[in-house]
Simulated scan of single mutants.
Amino acid sequence: MIELTIDVDDRRIIQATQTGLPLTPCPYHTIAEQLGLSADEVMGRLQRMLESGIIRRIGAVPNHYALGFKMNGMTVWDVPDEQVDDLGQGVGQLDFVSHCYCRPRHLPQWPYNLFAMVHARTQSQVEEQIQQIAELLGDFNRGHRTLYSTRILKKTGLRIGK
């Protein structure tokens, strides 16, 4: 069993990176300098925390609105439960789907179990993407809806305080 503990330096690294990496040519070196550690130590500690599950990922989170992708919709699909994992894998691999996952149905009001967020510059492009998903799902598509975003919400994950 992997022990999920952090020490003072791990905590400092998490606090220094939890709102994003510095926009510098060598962000880990910048963090290391700020914390009085070596870049190798910062990268090694981050790798250990990833492997142990203390942190889930390090990745870029682009602002799709700033990139011109002003339209987005959460598509929800009613597909057979025994096929949802395989179908979700296929939908999730489409380049216009930012995230795709399975959720429980809430019958009779909510029959949908497969969710996929799509982004595009125009509503007509979103509708074309939805059609591509429908074609991929084929006869397994027993119905769907699209929930269009009406406002931007600030999204943040868990933050560790000082």
Rank of each mutant, 00 (worst) to 15 (best):
D95Y: 09
T24F: 05
I2P: 13
E41D: 15
P104H: 14
V91L: 06
N141E: 01
H99A: 08
I31L: 06
I55Q: 02
A16C: 14
N63H: 01
Q89H: 12
G20D: 02
Q132I: 11
I58G: 08
Q47G: 15
R151Q: 09
T17M: 06
L153A: 15
N72F: 04
G143V: 02
I152E: 01
L37M: 12
L87D: 08
M74E: 09
L147T: 00
K154S: 08
C102T: 15
P80S: 14
L94S: 04
D40E: 12
F96H: 12
M74A: 13
F115P: 01
D9W: 10
R56K: 06
S149G: 04
V42T: 08
V126D: 08
R56S: 11
N72D: 13
M74K: 09
R142G: 04
R121N: 02
V79G: 01
N113C: 09
F69M: 09
G68W: 02
D139V: 10
K155T: 07
H64K: 11
E33M: 08
V61I: 10
K70P: 03
K70G: 11
D81F: 09
Q129E: 03
L147H: 00
S52H: 07
S124E: 07
T156P: 06
F96G: 14
S149V: 00
T75W: 02
V76R: 00
T30D: 10
T75D: 01
Q131A: 13
T17N: 03
A39F: 00
L87R: 06
G36N: 07
S52C: 10
I13Q: 11
Q15E: 07
V79F: 00
M43S: 14
D85W: 07
V76C: 00
R159A: 15
L153W: 07
T5D: 11
I152S: 04
P62E: 02
Q34I: 12
D86I: 06
Q34F: 08
Q18H: 03
L158M: 08
E135K: 07
S52Y: 05
S98C: 14
V97Y: 15
I55G: 06
V76I: 06
L158H: 05
L4G: 09
V42I: 12
D85F: 10
P27N: 05
Q123P: 04
A39M: 07
T156W: 04
D10G: 13
Q131D: 12
G88T: 13
L87W: 03
D10V: 14
D10W: 04
L87S: 10
V118T: 15
A116Q: 03
